[in-house]
Structures are given as C-alpha cells and as structure tokens.
Design a protein around this nucleic acid. Structure first.
Lengths: 349, 349
DNA sequence: GCGCGTTACTGACACGTGTTAATCACAGGA
DNA sequence: TCCTGTGATTAACACGTGTCAGTAACGCGC
C-alpha cells in the first residue's frame, strides 16, 4: 500500500501556513487578501503532494453536492426511449460540465416503487433532479417540489407548475401533416405513438387536428388509430386503416418505431410507399435513415432537450432561475422518401 | 421554506436514546444488542420525522461512497458506441442496484484531457471506475492501478494486468466466417470495423484468419480492407473489393454500421444481396433488423457486459475479487437474410 | 457481600473540509 | 507616544455521521 491520501493539513504544513489559508487559496475565495508569495507556496505544495480535496468532506461542509441526477423511468416504452438516451445524456452532461457539476444516472426499474428517487433528494445525494417520464399521480413529487427541492421534468405534467422541458409535440405534428397536405393529400390517417393516457400522444393528435382544420379539412375520428410504442401495434393499426372502404392516401405515424410496423403492413398487401400510400413518422430514430424506403420524419432534438434540462435545473439550484421555466423545443421536418416529395437520390441526412 | 432537515440527533431526542443507538438501529449493526422496544421506538421516531441520513456525512465518516462511475471516452467512434450505451448502462446499473451502489456517468469530451477522470478517484468521489475505451499510453491509469484504486476496463489493455471485461471478438469473427464457410463460400472478404490501431479490430481480423485456416483456406491479405466506424468507409472498402479481378462471393463486415455502407456500394453496382454477394455484419445494432435485406450479424451482449463490469468492480471494491479478473463474454450469431441462409420470411428477432 | 460476566446503552473522538470572527504586525497621522 | 486603520493570516467552530472504548444495571455463584 502506498502512503495515505494527503489532506489540506499536509499541504498547510508543507507550505508553512494554516489550513484556512490553503482553503482560501485553492478555492480562490474573493475579498480575501493573500500575498502573492504565500499563494504560490500553497499552490506548489499542493502540486508537490498531488493533493485532491476530499469531495465528501467538502460537500458536508459546504452543504452542496454539485451533482444532479437523471431519474429514468423504465416503463413500457423502454426500447422507444432508449433511442433518446445517448443524446439526452450528452446534452445533460455538457450542461453539467459547463457549470462544474456531475451527473448521477438513476434508472427506476419496473419492480421498484415509483418514488424510489426521493432518497436521492432527501438524503442530499444530489442538489437537484431531472425526472424523465413523470407520473401525475406521484404524491412524493409534489411534496418535494413544495419543499423547494430543485426539480425539472422531462415531459409536461399538467396541473403542477413544476419547471419542465419538452419538445413541442403539437407543432411537430403540424409540420408532419402540413407537409402531407402540401403534397396534395386530402385524406390523411393518423396512428399515434401511444395510448391516449400519454400526454405526448394527446399533443400529437391535437397537432394533427389543428393542421387539418387550418386547411379546411374536417377532423374525422374514423381515420385515427392508437399505436403502442412498438412495431406490432403499427402493423395492426395500419391494417385497420387499410381495411376501410375508403382508405387514406397518406398516414402520419407519430412514432418511427410504430411506422416501421405500418410499412410492413402496407408492403404485405402489395402496396408501395410512397406511390400508393405516403408515410411520415416522428422521432427520427437512427433506423429511420436505413429502412426502405428511408422515412420522412420529425426530428426530436435529444441533445438540445438534455442541455435545456441540465441548464434549467442548475440555474434553479444556484438560485438564478430564468423567467420562463417551461421550455419548449422545436422539432425539425426531415424529408426523405417515404412521403413522396423527393425521388430516390444519393442524399444523406 | 419548510423546517430544517431532521438529523440523527433529532431522531435520538424523539426516541429518548443516544445518537449512537440510532445509528446502530438504522444500520442494523451486527453483534450489538438492542432491546426490541428500543429498536421499535427508534424506527418509529425515524419514520415520524421522515428521516433520511445525510449521504455526504455518512461517506465522510465511513470512508466509502457506495458509488461507482462509468468513464465514457467520446472518441472518433462516438456514434458507433452510442448504440451500446443504453444496454451497457442498464447492465451496470442493475449490478449497482443489486449491491446497493449508485452510478455516476462521466463522459470525457474530445476537448478534455484524457485523464480528466483521475479527479473522481483521487478526490474519493467514487469507490471505483469502469473505463470504456482506455488508452494504453495513459500513465495516470497505471498509476491509479498501482496505488490500489479499483478499476475495471471495458475493452482489453494488453500489458497491464488490470481487471477487464470484453466480448470475445475473435470467437465472434469465427462464428461469422464459419457461417459463411458452412454456406459453401470459399472466397470471403473482410472489412474490419476500425483501423488496426484498435485492438477489437485486430481481434476480429485474427478470428477471420483462424476460421479460414481451420477450413484449409489460405489467408489472403488482398481480401482484407480496413473500415473506420462509419458507412462511408464501408462503401469505399466494398468498392475496392468489388474492383478486384476476382471479387469475393461473401464479405464479413466486422461492424453493422460499416456494413450498411457496404450494402449501398453493392446495390449501386446492380448486384444483389445475398444472391450475388453474401454479407455478415457484427454488433447487431438496432438498425440491423430493419435494413434491406435484414442483416445477419454477430450480437454483442451489451447488458451482459455492463453487468459483468459492474459486478466485477464492486466485488473488487468490497475486497472480494473473483479469481478470474479478465472476463470474456460470448457473442451470438443472428441469422437473418443478408447471408443467404434463409429465404424471406416473417420471422422477427 | 463480593467479584464477575452479560446485556443495553452512551460519551467522545474521528472523518476533512468551509467559513466567521478574531489576532497580529505594521505603517501613518496627531 | 499613542491611536487607528489595513493587509495578511489563523484559531475555532460547524457540517452529520460511524464507531471504539467504556459504563451502569443486573443476575448469579460462592
């Protein structure tokens, strides 16, 4: 075994000053006068001993952890959300690094209680939490927020005015349906990403309705089906739409994963995409570029969401909250081939 | 603002015992006798006050953080590795949760020094580190290991005998090439996943060579090309192989991402997969199932790797290291359509 | 009555840092 | 000579827990 970890006392002894002075120098405490020679002596001593302050001690004394956590609910939509995880993490960790914070990653598995994360907050494990996939019926959540613990939700939670970050699902749906309308389609079906209990599902439906209405086309409930995150549900939903006496000429499938299932259903009937049926997806998962035909879709800015959530949370932690604490990020229409707007080409997005 | 956080002293006062007793009860310290009534009084008091121990204080006193970190080097292969991140994280956090640990996620961005992670170890931020994508020329790494700090590498580092976890790349390549040989191919090309500087690339090449030799086919360097993680490199490499006077009838592309580029090159020449050229990939990324034709490939057990790394590290931290500290996990051959072994069907894997 | 072991509990120190209030040396003005 | 302000430094306390060494009470054998 090597020698023991050096402490700030060791640095102080080596530099011939008090421990307090070491703390002042290493933390660059403002409004404290330290002579340049002393400062240098301390820095030299610290370097010579290869001194790193003990984080736990520092946290205990300062009362701050400089750590935030991402609480990741692993629900029925796990595979769907896993596609966003790398981007979201990258965005959050970038913000964290920018402000000098660390990130704790805490998935909540299905067999755990939903409020397993409160221990992180109550035990002062972290200074704040980003909660992805919050449940509206979670009392601990409201309690934490009432007690002033910094929280940011990924995904809206109607009712409670908790700071949140989300993508503008309704506008994204308007972009998708608007694109199909511009291509001349009048009879456009909808397959949602998820059951109506999910707010994102409601919002995308709302955008679909808005786009149609502003084009003077009446909303027809008979053209709406509900997906359930996976391909199977997309296949069934598309089958159901194609069985209609007068099937749609285009379908907005509000999830790429579901859209992949829909494509299969269409192909199995010998129909061609986009010539017979045009398709626009949502999410822009990695696979969207590679399937046949490449999927026109709505890109969700995962990194941007992560950055926004991280920055918002840290600013709240530091007592400098922005005026607007409900952030909405814009989506982007990615035109590929499944919508019929462009012919096959070498373009690569 | 609500009232202050309760401390163990508050619990002690409410229960009418000493703080020491509270600690004994809540931590279930063995070999300490506490009467059942006292124990219950303490538990009731803790519950009544909604007491959660202060993690930082506990860490300082105990000298242990019960936290491990995943250090994630974001190098030139970032997009390729992002595909594994969710699985790896799930495996690690499962192991962490099983042993009562937390996970810190620490990406190292390209603009940071390679050894930015040492602060985590030296400052006792975590009890141990999992390093993904280690560099052999990193002196801090060897120094940490020499000082007895618990480390586990994801990916081999030849030379230093640091505990590590990796997939058996060579055997995976043998599986892939063996499958092509069994289908009757004699002239099999290789496109690696990465330049030869990457050990995984060397190992997959080695497996390719072994499989051929054990089938009595001499290794021909002229059939080997080096990929570079992305599709472009796969396209170029495949073009180069197809330009040969006697092109191969099958190609083992040791990366699905690279294979996608190769498929494009083949299709652009009007050739069909698998009828004219058979392809087997490596990694089993999500997109592999969805491209046309669905890619036969070698599945890498991301969750298993994560679990193995997490468990190995924690056992080392707890002073109970297994005898074998170099773990190798097996890959799995996933047969789809790009190899020509099965005709188009409804199967879904 | 006294020594002794056992049960149930506590006092006091340690962990390594941040931070406030105080101290000291010293120069300058009256 | 004494008072005062200021620049440089430090003593001392606080943060909330884990844990060792001890103590008080009590039963028991002789």
């Amino acid at each position: 075994m090597g020698r023991k970890r050096p402490t700030s006392r060791d640095v102080a002894n080596l530099a011939g000053v008090s421990r307090t002075t070491v703390s002042f120098v290493l933390n660059n405490v403002p409004d404290v006068k330290i002579s340049p020679e002393t400062r240098q002596r301390v820095l030299d001593a610290a370097r010579q001993l290869d001194y790193y302050p003990h984080v736990s001690a520092r946290r205990l004394a300062s009362g701050r952890t400089r750590t935030i956590a991402l609480v990741w609910h692993r629900g029925p939509d796990a595979t769907y959300r896993d596609a966003f995880l790398p981007g979201l993490l990258q965005g959050i960790t970038r913000a964290a690094r920018h402000y000098g914070y660390h990130l704790l990653f805490r998935p909540i598995e299905p067999d755990e209680p939903d409020d397993a994360y409160v221990e992180l907050a109550r035990g002062r494990h972290t200074d704040g939490l980003i909660l992805s996939g919050p449940r509206s019926d979670d009392p601990s959540l409201l309690e934490l927020h009432r007690d002033g613990f910094p929280l940011v939700l990924h995904g809206r939670l109607p009712g409670a005015d908790i700071p949140s970050v989300d993508v503008d699902n309704a506008r994204g749906a308007v972009q998708a349906v608007g694109h199909l309308l511009a291509l001349g389609h009048k009879r456009i079906g909808l397959i949602t990403n998820a059951p109506p209990a999910y707010t994102a599902s409601q919002q995308r439906l709302e955008g679909y309705r808005l786009a149609l209405e502003s084009a003077g086309i009446p909303f027809d409930e008979g053209l709406v089906r509900y997906g359930n995150f996976d391909e199977e549900s997309g296949q069934e939903a598309a089958d159901s739409l194609l069985d209609l006496p007068e099937p749609p000429t285009a379908i907005f499938v509000a999830s790429d994963m579901v859209a992949i299932g829909s494509l299969k259903a269409i192909r199995d009937r010998g129909l061609r995409v986009p010539q017979d049926i045009a398709i626009v997806g949502f999410d822009d998962i990695t696979a969207a570029r590679f399937i046949t035909p490449p999927l026109t879709t709505i890109r969700v800015p995962a990194i941007g969401l992560g950055w926004a959530a991280g920055e918002l949370l840290i600013r709240i932690v530091e007592g400098d909250p922005p005026r607007e604490t409900e952030v909405m990020l814009e989506t982007e229409l990615i035109v590929r081939q499944s919508c019929g707007a462009v012919e096959r080409s070498g373009e690569r997005r």
